[in-house]
Design a protein around this nucleic acid. Structure first.
Lengths: 218, 218
DNA sequence: GCACAACATGACCCCTCGGTCATCTTCTCG
DNA sequence: CGAGAAGATGACCGAGGGGTCATGTTGTGC
């Protein structure tokens, strides 16, 4: 997408460095979260700091590229699960997949958690993902696998929440989130219970052009 | 506890400034989390930066003092609820109280979320809180208000998780966490369900003298 | 009201971070 | 192989953070 379309041929060392950088950034972001320094990324890739900025003009650009890969894969999984027979199972599988990604990548948590720092295409990818989760949830609702007042937004929010719940246990038991996914899903499934407090949350929109929910905080 | 016990009398302006500082720091930490700068705190209190460091030698000292107030109040609530008749109701009330505090104080979330930066007395207070929650949970378990394989650690972890779930909705609906507390509690209550995956998590200990789980990351 | 200790102040130090750029190196093409 | 452009490098910049300290100010006991 970036190198060989036009007449200009990318130099071999440039291509190699770009690959090394993406790999190093992937690991560094996953381990340390978005606050990892560009110097650290450069060091991991075995190049100088300036080289990082030659390939990715800002830290946000680098982060966006990496997050897009993650989101694309997750979106692909969601699309595939949309065609499963057992919609309840599919929804739970999707949640497991998403939480697994969160558990393996601190930067992904940071990006999902606070929309403060973001590229437009990442925001749009997240919106697309929310749409698909809405569909997944609708199917589960129709098949009575979850209660009638659960929305896709509930599910999206629960992803971050369930991961956060299990996070202190991550060192000792990397898959501890399965326990809490089970508890949460039992709650989602509860029939014969009074209506939930508060109306179902409105759909989260990160990439609205009206600029209403622009980043406000530090 | 800090000023008037010994022979030395604290000067009036010093006492006033200390009060102003604690109040300002409370607000600043609550709004911006632990990453708020000491300069910001000083500004809010209407004093110079040096004054902050005269009263609190390090940022950690200031943060610890504020967190201790919060934890003491929460611990008091937990102790009171331990004497309620309906143990299930008491446990849920406690969770509501805790999540409400998390929703109102970003620094509290930060401190609970990652134990990286901490004073010993804060760690001990958290441990005491965990003990009390363990008791609260045991009573609820005995009264069959929650399933038999739920521990106090589950509950403590769920506090942060439920808050995190609702956090993106905080601006529009400050009490949105009630919806997710309801869902989670329905899950905790689920009878006739297969056993949860993974054994109940071991109790979290923040103040262990063996220094095993010392802060490792950045 | 005086003297002095305690206190308040903000310029300053050192550090880290994202980002820049003059300079040097290396790949590529003829 | 040689020229030249694309790429790599790391010293450097400004912002902002926690923390310090010489200096100026003020409350207090005599």
């Amino acid at each position: 997408m970036t190198g060989r379309t036009a007449a200009v041929q990318a130099r071999s060392d440039s291509v190699r460095n770009r690959r090394l950088l993406l790999q190093a950034a992937n690991e560094a972001f996953a381990e340390c979260g978005v606050d990892v320094s560009m110097h650290m990324v450069a060091q991991r890739a075995g190049v100088a700091k300036g080289t990082v900025f030659r390939h990715f003009p800002t830290k946000d650009d680098l982060l966006a590229e990496i997050m897009m890969q993650l989101l694309d894969r997750l979106l692909e999984t969601a699309d595939r699960l949309l065609r499963a027979d057992d919609a309840g199972r599919a929804l739970k599988d999707f949640m497991g997949h998403g939480i697994g990604l969160l558990a393996a990548d601190r930067a992904f948590c940071d990006v999902i958690g606070r929309p403060s720092l973001q590229h437009t295409n990442v925001r749009e990818a997240i919106d697309r993902l929310c749409d698909t989760v809405e569909d997944l949830t609708a199917r589960a609702r129709e098949q009575r696998a979850v209660r009638g007042d659960i929305t896709g937004t509930d599910i999206v929010l629960l992803l971050g929440g369930i991961h956060q719940t299990a996070q202190p246990l991550l060192d000792r038991e990397p898959r501890a989130w399965e326990r809490f996914l089970e508890i949460a899903f039992d709650g989602l499934r509860a029939r014969d219970r009074p209506a939930l407090p508060h109306p179902p949350p409105a759909q989260l929109r990160m990439a609205d052009p009206s600029g209403v929910s622009a980043p406000t905080r530090t």
